[in-house]
């Protein structure tokens, strides 16, 4: 049986280890890299190395950044009295795209997950408590995912932060904009009734 050249096999093996990339996709990407000009391949490898060398977590909010504190924490136009708590750094970009929020963020780096043994000590909850204790934070918006883990995290945050006298709010649950009641699932619809607002 004819074997692939060793460097190509190694590249396919490495690509195959990436999330969401199976062996076929790994082969396709590897052959594509082979076909591209050397400069492009070099740029790709340099980008991978740079991301490992230069991207760090912001010491204040734990967002991914190449400068500490991150751009958002340094921005004087943002409201420092409002902190939005999220599970992963990627959630910041989703919220920023919506363009409605002008406060600061705090990334927990996950959510409480008893089945996986992930407790408060594995998350960035203690730095958040310290941040609130330092003063200046008037409102904490908990924007964890609307899953059981996300809700458990929100409840835990309420328990540890509420005694510090800060206003705690949770993002709303319910129907997507442009959706139709007729096609809404029962669980979401029930939640939207629980979270109804006075007009």
């Amino acid at each position: 049986m004819v074997k692939r050249p060793k460097p190509l096999s190694v590249l396919i093996e490495r690509l195959n280890k990436l999330p969401g990339i199976g062996e076929r996709s790994a082969q396709r990407i590897a052959y594509h890299i082979l076909k591209t000009p050397e400069k492009d391949a070099e740029k790709l490898s340099r980008a991978i190395m740079e991301v490992k060398e230069k991207v760090i977590h912001c010491s204040l909010c734990y967002n991914l950044t190449d400068q500490d504190p991150c751009q958002l924490c340094q921005d004087p136009s943002r409201d420092k009295g409002t902190v939005c708590v999220i599970e992963e750094p990627g959630d910041i970009y989703s919220i920023e795209k919506a363009a409605g929020f002008k406060g600061l963020y705090h990334v927990l780096m996950g959510a409480l997950s008893p089945l996986d043994g992930i407790g408060p000590e594995q998350l960035r909850i203690e730095p958040l408590v310290e941040r609130v204790k330092e003063g200046g934070v008037k409102e904490v918006i908990v924007a964890t995912n609307p899953t059981l883990s996300g809700e458990a995290t929100a409840m835990y945050l309420l328990k540890v932060l509420k005694p510090l006298g800060v206003k705690m709010t949770r993002i709303a649950h319910g129907l997507p904009v442009g959706g139709n009641l007729e096609f809404a699932d029962e669980v979401t619809l029930a939640r939207s009734f629980q979270g109804r607002q006075e007009l």
């Binding site: 089945l115 809700e151 458990a152 409840m155």
Partner: peptide, 22 residues
């Protein structure tokens, strides 16, 4: 769904639910 249950209204309920799941 057979019936919509609400187990996310308190921390005790949720952590009891996690134990039951396990």
């Amino acid at each position: 769904p057979v019936k919509v249950y609400d187990i996310s209204s308190s921390m005790d309920k949720m952590f009891t639910a996690f134990c039951m799941m396990e």
